[in-house]
Amino acid sequence: MASELKTRINDELKTAMRAKEKARVAVLRLVMAEFKRIEVDERIELDDARVLAVLDKMLKQRRDSITQYEQADRPELAEQEKSESLVIQEFLPQPLTDAELDEIVDKAIAQTGASEMRDMGKIMGLIKPQVQGRADMADVSKRIKASLG
C-alpha cells in the first residue's frame, strides 16, 4: 500500500521547486532520496508507519548534529540543521505533551506488569509504535527509568 505521507512530501517538493525555495527543495529531496534508498535496498514500498520512522530518524540526526555544532561553536551550521529540522517536522504528527507521554508510559508499565529495569525492553516495545514521530525515544527512555527507578 502506497504511503499517503510520502505522496504528500513529493507534492510539497514539486510546490517548493515551482516557488524556487532552494533550501526547502534541498531538504525534501534529501528525504525523498532516503525513502528511495530504503525501497531499493529492501525491495519494498514504504507505508506511512515506515515513512514516519524514517522522518523520526532524520529528525533525531538533525538534533544530534545541532548539539554537536553548538558545542563546537559553529552556530551557522547549527542554524542550517535547525532549518532542516523545521521542514522535516512539518510532516510528523503533533508532538505529545509531557502529560500525554507520562500517561502512555504509566499505562505501558501497568500493562506489562513491569517492576524493574530488565523489563525496559517490553515497555519500549509497547510504547514505540504509539509515539513514533511524536516523541523523542531518548526522552521516553528517561521517563521509563524514572518510573521504574
Score class of each variant (00 low, 15 high):
Glu4Met: 07
Leu5Tyr: 03
Leu5His: 00
Leu5Asp: 01
Lys6Met: 08
Lys6Pro: 00
Arg8His: 10
Ile9His: 01
Ile9Lys: 00
Asp11Gly: 05
Asp11Tyr: 04
Glu12Ile: 07
Glu12Met: 05
Glu12Phe: 10
Glu12Trp: 08
Leu13Ala: 01
Lys14Asn: 09
Lys14Thr: 14
Lys14Phe: 10
Thr15Lys: 08
Thr15Ala: 14
Ala16His: 01
Arg18Gly: 14
Ala19Cys: 05
Lys20His: 08
Glu21Trp: 00
Lys22Cys: 05
Ala23Gly: 15
Arg24Ala: 08
Val25Gln: 01
Val25His: 00
Val25Phe: 13
Val25Asn: 03
Val27Tyr: 02
Arg29Thr: 06
Leu30Glu: 11
Ala33Cys: 03
Lys36Ser: 15
Arg37Ser: 04
Ile38Trp: 02
Val40Asp: 12
Glu42Lys: 02
Glu42Ala: 12
Arg43Ala: 14
Arg43Gly: 10
Arg43Phe: 10
Arg43Ser: 14
Ile44Glu: 01
Glu45Tyr: 00
Glu45Asp: 14
Asp47Gly: 06
Asp47Glu: 15
Asp48His: 07
Asp48Ile: 01
Ala49Gly: 08
Ala49Cys: 09
Ala49Ser: 11
Arg50Gln: 04
Val51Met: 07
Val51Arg: 01
Leu52Tyr: 09
Ala53Met: 06
Ala53Gly: 08
Asp56Ala: 11
Lys57Met: 15
Lys57Ser: 09
Lys57His: 12
Leu59Ser: 10
Lys60Gly: 14
Arg62Cys: 12
Arg63Pro: 08
Arg63Gly: 10
Arg63Ala: 13
Asp64Glu: 14
Ile66Trp: 11
Ile66Phe: 00
Tyr69Val: 01
Tyr69Gln: 03
Glu70Cys: 06
Glu70Ala: 08
Gln71Asp: 14
Ala72Lys: 11
Asp73Thr: 06
Asp73Arg: 13
Arg74Tyr: 07
Arg74Val: 13
Arg74Glu: 15
Pro75Asp: 06
Glu76Lys: 15
Glu76Ile: 06
Leu77His: 11
Ala78Ser: 11
Ala78Leu: 00
Glu79Arg: 15
Glu79Lys: 15
Lys82Gln: 10
Ser83Thr: 08
Ser83His: 10
Glu84Asn: 15
Val87Trp: 05
Val87Thr: 02
Gln89Phe: 04
Glu90Trp: 09
Glu90Leu: 10
Glu90Met: 13
Leu92Tyr: 02
Leu92Arg: 01
Leu92Cys: 08
Pro93Asp: 08
Pro93His: 03
Pro93Glu: 02
Pro93Ser: 05
Gln94Val: 14
Leu96Asp: 13
Leu96Met: 03
Leu96Lys: 10
Leu96Gly: 04
Leu96Pro: 05
Thr97Lys: 10
Asp98Cys: 06
Ala99Glu: 12
Glu100His: 07
Glu100Lys: 04
Leu101His: 02
Asp102Pro: 05
Glu103Val: 05
Glu103Phe: 09
Glu103Gly: 09
